[in-house]
Design a binder for these strands. Structure first.
Length: 262
DNA sequence: ATGGCAAATTGAATTTGA
């Protein structure tokens, strides 16, 4: 069978609802992983998704910010909100479905100043990554996918200017090193960069603070889909649905898609 | 350590994002 997973930081599921439904109708993912839903579980707009055939909702929401969700057309075998750290507030949810373990993450953004002594948000981000590195070493890496907003652009060509961003949170040396340590700790494969490379667009985020994101194309690749070695052997393809950034009232992130023939 | 914006909460201003 073929499974399709869509992963998207929507910056509020309620504000982006129509766009999410349109994309879901068009691309027909079996599994939708959302980040930054910004809504408590009781207020999640499940009825609108039900009209499209999505019947199961695995939610880890908190008020106002953060929040992740996995939405499926079939019941999952198991659901986990991992006890990773005390920072794990609406930042992770996992399900097992179609024999695959899917982990949906929203890694902390890290604030403005890339110094953990001054900026506790940056310290929290690095601590969160350390926990993920250790967790990655311990888990069963069979039939496993990790996706979400990791808030780090690991490679020099994952940003519009390595020189101008090397001291900016999301692309500092220490963050890039930690993210690659996380990747290597679990023997994960960066599914997006294996099939999409410059000069094709690899960016998944463009700041709102630019009148037209296309003019200077100052984007970053902050969102990722990683797959385990056994899935790497399967036939798979990925897409970055960057056309959504040009929608009216867009999210600042765009969706990623992976299609795997199991 | 700012500028350019957006969303949620609360009730015009603040917090968060990156």
């Amino acid at each position: 069978m073929i499974i399709k997973i869509l992963s998207w930081n929507v910056n509020s599921v309620r504000s982006r609802l129509k766009q999410i439904l349109d994309i879901s109708q068009k691309f027909e993912p079996n599994i939708i992983c959302l980040q930054e839903t910004k809504v408590i579980n009781n207020s999640f707009p499940i009825n609108e998704f039900k009209k499209l055939g999505y019947s199961h909702f695995y939610l880890n929401g908190i008020p106002s910010y953060n929040g992740v969700a996995i939405i499926t057309k079939k019941e999952a075998k198991s659901v986990d909100i991992l006890n990773l750290s005390n920072l794990n507030n609406g930042r992770q949810i996992s399900v097992k479905i179609f024999g695959i373990q899917i982990h949906n993450f929203y890694i902390p953004s890290g604030g403005d100043i890339p110094d953990e002594k001054i900026n506790t948000k940056f310290k929290n981000k690095l601590d969160f990554l350390k926990v993920l590195i250790n967790w990655s070493k311990k888990i069963d890496q069979q039939n496993c996918i990790i996706c979400g907003d990791f808030n780090i652009a690991p490679y020099e060509d994952d940003v519009w200017s390595h020189n101008q961003l090397k001291n900016v949170v999301s692309h500092t040396d220490i963050e890039r090193r930690y993210l690659l340590e996380f990747l290597e700790a679990g023997n994960w494969n960066d599914a997006i960069r294996q099939s999409i490379n410059p000069p094709k667009n690899v960016f998944t985020w463009w700041s709102y603070r630019s009148k037209d994101f296309r003019v200077n194309n100052r984007g970053r690749r902050l969102d990722h889909i990683w797959i385990s070695n056994d899935l790497q052997e399967k036939k798979f393809s990925t897409k970055i649905l960057d056309h959504t950034r040009a929608f009216d009232k867009p999210s600042d992130h765009v969706p990623l898609e992976i299609k795997i023939e199991l």
